[in-house]
Nucleic acid binder design. Structure first.
Lengths: 199, 199
DNA sequence: CGCATCTTGCACCGATCGTTTCAACATGCG
DNA sequence: CGCATGTTGAAACGATCGGTGCAAGATGCG
């Protein structure tokens, strides 16, 4: 039962990364990590150090194994920026649709971490969008644009709101955050006739 | 020391919500909640129920107290959709800049939950953007557009990536996610001469 | 084989987790 | 006052947390 290592270190790290993605930092207990990797506690600690160190290595492993997937889908040469973005986000969407593989972010709370987002909570979130949508509808009408775009813009604005929260917590600068917000504000701008600098 | 309640229930709930925002679900222990609200354990449990119930109520309270802030900044009537979006995201940015108030998302992991996002982790994230930026630079050059836009587009695409992860975990439909991704792909499309349906 | 070296499983550590219990106390009503 | 009702602080519950110690077992080398 002992002697030389009876497992592949890199595969074990991949499995550990998966546990962290599935459960998040706090809910990924040592017991869950040992179960998910198949290693014993001693092997886990002697190979990867304590939980913090293991999480660091998992994060690095995640980032390194993550981007090649996108590169694979985005083989050059590229001539259309929109196509690049579309292909990139398509990979994210496909991965999100598959609940068995890590999606585009290791740093959001896992479902196990907010046990209480029930129907009432969902409705509350919807209400938040609806208020924004109503304002956008009004503005689109006043600008002579298609008011049916309001729902789409409201959704995307909320999405930007969430991304700002994530990026700030990951450590992006306020300049970067400003850039994201400014670009989101320019979405489809030319479609409803507002020129740069307006507003 | 007892008799009638010696605290304001709504204010206590507000403080509890703040603790959940600051620490996240897992790291918001009962001790931290009692310290943050000023209540004893008995008062907390008898007033709000167990931790899950308290989190539900905090989430609702968060959503309800959150949107009025945006409405306040977005007094109508509105005539410019971009201005509405800009004002909305401006509130988010201002709140993120202030570390003492809840920002735009209660469901991202707090800083206390990933103790290992050090310089190495930051650099890894940067590498992920740089790869995307290089592809976009190539595409922008081929399309005859300004390649300096690549960094901005890469950042915003990553932002969309993160927002998709959050929205999916909150329970948004795949249709909604598709909408967000499609809109992100159209960002500044008309600026570099790519028509709808290309690619 | 003899021995050093490494790995593994298991028990165990103190600390903290969410939750419950309970006695002491303050109030409102008769 | 007497008593029911409700609140408060504090102690304690079992469970689980991250982490360690250690003996048993397996290997490589002489």
């Amino acid at each position: 039962m002992a002697g030389r290592k009876q497992f592949d270190v890199d595969e074990a790290l991949r499995l550990a990364m998966h546990v962290f993605w599935r459960w998040g930092w706090s809910e990924a207990s040592i017991d869950r990590l040992t179960e998910g990797t198949g290693l014993g506690r001693s092997s886990l600690y002697s190979t990867f150090g304590d939980k913090s160190t293991l999480f660091q290595k998992s994060l690095l492993r995640y980032a390194q194994s993550y981007h090649p997937l996108y590169e694979e889908a985005l083989t050059g040469p590229h001539s259309d920026p929109s196509a690049v973005i579309t292909a990139y986000l398509r990979v994210t969407l496909n991965r999100i649709a598959d609940p068995t593989v890590p999606d585009g972010c290791l740093l959001t709370m896992s479902a196990a971490q907010f046990p209480a987002l029930d129907a009432a909570g969902q409705a509350t979130v919807r209400t938040m969008i609806d208020t924004l949508r109503a304002m956008l509808e009004q503005a689109l009408l006043a600008a002579g644009a298609d008011e049916n775009e309001a729902a789409e813009l409201a959704l995307c604005t909320l999405a930007t709101n969430k991304s700002l929260a994530v990026l700030s917590r990951v450590g992006f600068s306020s300049d970067d955050l400003e850039t994201v917000a400014a670009t989101a504000s320019r979405v489809r701008r030319s479609d409803h006739g507002v020129r740069p600098g307006d507003g």
